[in-house]
Design a protein around this nucleic acid. Structure first.
Lengths: 336, 336
DNA sequence: TTGAAAGCGCTAACAC
DNA sequence: GTGTTAGCGCTTTCAA
């Protein structure tokens, strides 16, 4: 079955493609095309099973009605949920989402962005890797609608939606202190990304405000790109070296997950032995035993907001740079 | 900064767009274009920061180099992992993936497929909802490359990659019996989808082979589209009605997750009290306590295979219908 | 060796 | 009210 175009409909009805195009685009009234003709065109389209070619339309109008979404790793539940909400919200506006994972690889990220740009995305929602800074500047310079999520570059003036990482971390530490934990350790990523830096800063300042000294040994910086297995090992070693630590703040969900494993294998007991709190949630924290207190980001709202910002930029060509920060919520569970 | 096209390059160098196109497509040699000219074109492209417009190219060539992936719910780890592997494998062949979630809604699924078709996907990888049957027939009739994953329609002749659901379920029940559990219940979805039906059949036949009677009360069919909270309640009620059941086979991961919650809230103890095995894995099963035995699908291989089948169909236009089944692996853990 | 020109499917300014 | 026509950016046949 050959693909049918407006030309076929035009031939069928015996009118020009213009007329067909107008009718199909709902401009019949505006262009004052007769009802009768309109019906003929519509029924012919139906009969021939016509499907407009969006690629051609995109070429002509310059609008692909597609958003590019670049996340770190779609198999991480945080990003998977974000993707879901982005997709859902975009759909409301008639946009489709093309998504890719950087797998935290700068090279791959650059390639993905390059590819998406060639495919004429109308806008980009990006969770950037550190190496994307330059390319993002270029995007901004070209006035392409762009929203960064989860993290950003302080020196690149872009829209972004994030959570208040500092506050979340700060409150987490305060909670642990209220719960009478004495020596609170930090397990974070060895990364320069803003969200991680702010979480670390929140920890450090909360500790110092409460008059708790932080020695270098108390903070563990896990390398960025190690396997889960290695991460667990690293944390176990650190635990063994620091037996007096009685509570841990993990700065991201997969560190927390690895941490739980490490704690268990070290023969320590969560809660009695060791308080635990983690940035981001996990099904393991919600339903494992014991359950684990988490600093939860309003992912749904963040995804929606990112889409709305992009749509605004696309439609109104508004170039105001909006930086939106959501408040995280601490969900207390058994581990604290 | 206006977007630069081959026309700009042509003007810059003082040649025709044809020549530019040849050079840019690596046909300089074939078309015997002089080295000198070739270099000039290349350097001009570089200088002007030329980026080929894939939309235009797609319109001309009829190939978008894009695959449509329709999953049930991207926030379900099974599908998220599948998506990741599909994306990764497609990338190797120079294909990008456009993905969408049906959220198990036939209407939404139809809309997504419709939309992807307009966007000239070169092929489709689909985890179908029951209502997609008709639309898929149409796709097949039009010879569009299509691979179904996880489930299929027995009466629609399409390529598919699945796991041996019957065997997985059968072996799961056998394992529980070996472990001396006496009365094994089934918690499954109230669904006609092949994968669910086969898992149920595997259960039923394994039970009967071992001379274990299955009364209707022993199997629970949870409605398809209920909330997590309701599902937990349904399972708790069922547990209360069937105190003599001492082991449960859950047919999919989120039922298992809800089941663990239900079991805990019912005050029952997994393993001593109640053996548990679940189709599909979860981080909760791997790292929760106690850990839960799972029937694990080789997601990575399945994703890769689906992509390869699609690429084969696209490139060689081979119309042989390939149906591939992988063997699932039972990962024994504490719960059995 | 290189270029002119047609055309992929669609839109829209302009003409009649 | 409806049609002619140019053109979005690219590829490719055919001619020179």
């Amino acid at each position: 079955m050959a693909t049918v175009s407006i030309k076929d409909i035009a031939r069928e009805v015996g009118v020009s493609t213009t007329t067909v195009s107008f009718v199909l685009n709902g401009k019949a009234r505006e262009k004052r095309i007769s009802e009768e003709l309109k019906d003929k065109v519509l029924s012919a389209a139906q009969r021939l099973n016509y499907r407009p070619n969006q690629v051609a339309r995109g070429l002509r109008t310059g609008q692909s009605h597609t958003l590019g979404l670049i996340v770190e790793d779609i198999s991480n539940p945080f990003f998977a949920h974000l993707a879901r909400h982005v997709e859902h919200e975009a759909d409301k506006y008639g946009y489709t989402v093309m998504f890719c994972s950087t797998e935290n690889d700068d090279k791959k990220a650059a390639g993905l962005l390059y590819m998406l740009r060639h495919r004429q995305m109308d806008g980009f929602i990006i969770i950037p890797t550190p190496g994307m800074r330059q390319d993002l500047c270029e995007l901004v310079a070209e006035q392409k609608p762009l929203v960064l999520v989860d993290r950003y570059f302080p020196d690149v003036d872009t829209c972004h939606v994030t959570v208040d990482n500092y506050m979340g971390a700060h409150d987490a530490v305060k909670l642990l202190i209220e719960k009478k934990y004495q020596k609170i350790g930090l397990v974070t990523l060895n990364s320069t990304q803003t969200q991680m830096k702010e979480r670390e800063l929140g920890y450090l300042e909360a500790m110092s405000e409460q008059g708790r000294p932080v020695t270098p040994e108390m903070t563990l910086h896990v390398p960025f790109d190690t396997s889960d297995e290695q991460t667990v090992g690293t944390i176990m070693d650190w635990l063994a070296r620091n037996p007096e630590i009685d509570a841990i703040f993990f700065t991201t969900n997969y560190l927390g997950v690895a941490g739980l494993d490490a704690i268990r294998r070290s023969g320590r007991k969560i809660k009695e032995d060791l308080g635990v709190i983690c940035f981001d949630d996990s099904i393991l924290f919600r339903l494992g035993s014991p359950t684990v207190t988490a600093i939860v980001q309003p992912i749904r709202e963040m995804g929606r907001q990112a889409v709305r910002m992009i749509i605004d930029m696309i439609q109104k060509k508004q170039d105001k740079v909006v930086k939106q920060t959501f408040a995280p919520v601490i969900v207390e569970r058994e581990s604290t």
